[in-house]
């Protein structure tokens, strides 16, 4: 996973709530068995509308998505995270996230930032007023900064550390392989196996 410390970039304001993962990447794109090429599927149905915000050339090259509440609800598809990252996003800011999406993001190094709904709105308005606005997302300080504004956000220490170091969870867990083996010896004898 790519480490995340601090990121500065421009943003896209997505003024929609309940952006479910079926919208982020429709099911037809999930048939690929590789991990690449998902940027084409990002919001593919919505992007057919020329007026959709992502099609506005003023937002080209933006790397921070600022969405309405309940972003990433629904399907567990991690392809949604891959699509956002491969399109060029490093951060998604919203007032609420779907739990699975949020989890998937932190496994991949896409930073989900929760800010209060009124702050998200203010940020969206600021970007709409000036699409060239530079926004800094500082994971170390747990802050989002733009045009003289500072908004703090919460993230647990462990996830923050893992993101800042770019650490792979599996490697961390395997350090505790002994504890897993001990646990396995004590499992209830009637628990099923698939064989």
């Amino acid at each position: 996973m790519e480490a995340f410390t601090t990121h500065t970039g421009r943003a896209v304001p997505l003024r929609r709530s309940n952006v479910d993962t079926d919208q982020i990447i429709p099911a037809v794109w999930l048939k690929q068995v590789s991990r690449t090429g998902f940027e084409k599927g990002l919001f593919s149905a919505w992007r057919e509308d020329p007026a959709f915000v992502l099609n506005d050339p003023v937002h080209e090259g933006a790397s921070i998505l600022v969405s309405g509440p309940d972003f990433g609800t629904g399907s567990s598809r991690e392809h949604a995270v891959w699509a956002l990252q491969q399109y060029g996003f490093r951060v998604v800011i919203a007032a609420r996230f779907g739990d699975i999406f949020r989890n998937n993001s932190t496994k991949m190094g896409l930073l989900p930032v929760v800010l209060p709904a009124d702050v998200v709105e203010a940020l969206q308005s600021a970007v709409e007023a000036d699409p060239t606005l530079e926004i800094t997302v500082d994971l170390g300080e747990r802050q989002v900064r733009w045009g003289g504004e500072i908004a703090g956000f919460e993230i647990d220490d462990y996830t923050r550390w893992r993101l800042m170091e770019g650490l792979d969870d599996i490697g961390l867990t395997l350090r505790n392989a002994d504890a897993v083996a001990v646990y396995e010896n004590g499992r209830q004898p009637w628990l099923p196996t698939t064989v």
């Binding site: 496994k107 969870d169 867990t173 395997l174 392989a177």
Partner: peptide, 23 residues
């Protein structure tokens, strides 16, 4: 019982465990 993403699928395949905060 809960849904997970592909990174976590790999984690469970490799370790039969998942790191998680209790909801």
């Amino acid at each position: 019982a809960f849904g997970i993403g592909t990174s976590e699928v790999e984690h469970v395949l490799a370790t039969q465990t998942l790191p998680a905060y209790r909801p």
